[in-house]
Design a protein around this nucleic acid. Structure first.
Lengths: 246, 246
DNA sequence: CTCAATTTGTTCGTATGTATG
DNA sequence: ACATACATACGAACAAATTGA
């Protein structure tokens, strides 16, 4: 209506009441609205988001079911509780830091229907090993799944430490093998949104932000011995880096 | 083929044709379907996703508009190109790389209603300067806004290069000032979702993924001379890091 | 050249969900 | 709570283009 910019998606749209619900949920998580506090009135929200009263009401209804808000006719809407602080995971921009960070994590393996025999590599990234083992696992913290790992591991490397690889994270095992000389290792991160299957495994909602991480380790012969696609829950990721340190 | 588990979110939150489009887009992006290749038929996709023909068709139509797919009646649907590199921005985990990356960006300043006089610092991060200048700007690439920058810059530093700071990104100016000795600089990133105001400024939908970046520069005296809160569009961010390089 | 099989393209009616006032 | 408009999704039938036997 008298609205400046649309609350629409680039193409097609997520229903307005869900978008509003997400926005309000975030204000609570943020601490912008604290427990016991009264939030803006329907009139104010209606004006702010540029949607109708019923749509705002519907959004608040969702959050009421989530036990985040409570409506009281004639008084207003109040914040019930705040959700917990997350960020369990600190991604590290160095090899040592990374190994240290994932050392004590325990993967929980899940079967994969039709594992791709080989990883997809960029043009001249590296050469492929003769054979790979494909491992798929979920990492949890306090029972909450926070990442989904799909690894292609060169078969000969896997066989040399089979037991270790089935118990610990592949990367930390890899780092501990003396015979393996690593020439190069790199990682790229990008922000994505969760597909249905990922959303289910990580127990987050569809289209919730995730971080896709591609990690490649290349040995002295230029063979990609480890290629991982890792998907983290977005709200668990925090990345710190020193640019200049004393 | 084998399993026919629900691939989509049954709860009708995000429209099915968008979910399918996203799924197909990913297959192209990660090389599962390569350029010039023929993709599965409508019937197969219909079966796989458990949605109707029209819905699949609509999804493909979207990707055709994105120039990712090309339909040919009677023949099939073919991959045109691997998705265009949208990631205008490569976040760098090193000081030099970062300066290089943002050097030629031009900020477009926006007025801020009530600028906070001082940045919020963590407990023992650093000491505050006597006075700060607050700058708020939007960075664009080809007319598309991709980040929103809010900077607290120590006033004396700002005054010494006022003109430069109004033309180029603060960080690159800062890096070029000989008199300023930098003891420490660090950066933290976390994944967030867009609030209404941020969504409007970056022209993305409400709750779209964003990357919040906090960058702090501390001079030889332990004074925080630069404290920035940067919010990037999630889909513009790509972070690469070498963990081990030959 | 024709025919049949394959595959995309289109249209209809119906049902349900979403949003406004 | 109601009436209205519009978007989404289904299923099924039919049309049009391509290919190869």
């Amino acid at each position: 209506m008298a609205n400046n910019l649309p609350v629409l998606d680039s193409f097609g749209r997520v229903p307005a009441y869900l978008q509003v619900a997400a926005a309000l949920r975030r204000r609570i998580e943020n601490g912008q609205w604290k427990p016991m506090e009264k939030i803006s009135t329907l009139d104010e929200l209606e004006e702010e988001f540029g949607v109708s009263r019923v749509t705002i009401s519907k959004a608040i209804e969702i959050l009421e079911e989530e036990r985040l808000l409570q409506r009281q006719q004639g008084r207003g809407t109040f914040v019930l509780s705040t959700s917990v602080e997350k960020h369990a995971l600190a991604l590290e921009p160095t090899w040592e830091g990374m190994i240290r960070a994932i050392e004590q994590h325990t993967p929980q393996f899940i079967p994969s229907a039709s594992p791709p025999l080989f990883p997809v590599l960029g043009a001249h990234e590296a050469t492929l090993a003769d054979e790979y083992v494909f491992l798929r696992s979920i990492q949890k913290k306090d029972g909450t799944p926070y990442s989904l790992v799909s690894v292609h591991l060169a078969k000969n490397v896997f066989e040399s430490r089979r037991d270790a690889f089935m118990k610990k994270t592949a990367l930390s095992v890899l780092a501990g093998i003396k015979e393996v000389k690593i020439r190069k290792a790199y990682q790229t991160l990008e922000v994505q949104t969760a597909e249905k299957d990922v959303a289910d495994l990580l127990r987050i909602s569809l289209s919730a932000p995730t971080v896709g991480c591609r990690c490649v380790v290349i040995d002295a012969n230029g063979v990609a011995i480890y290629v991982a696609e890792i998907i983290y829950r977005g709200d668990f990721v925090k990345l710190s880096m020193n640019l200049i340190s004393a």
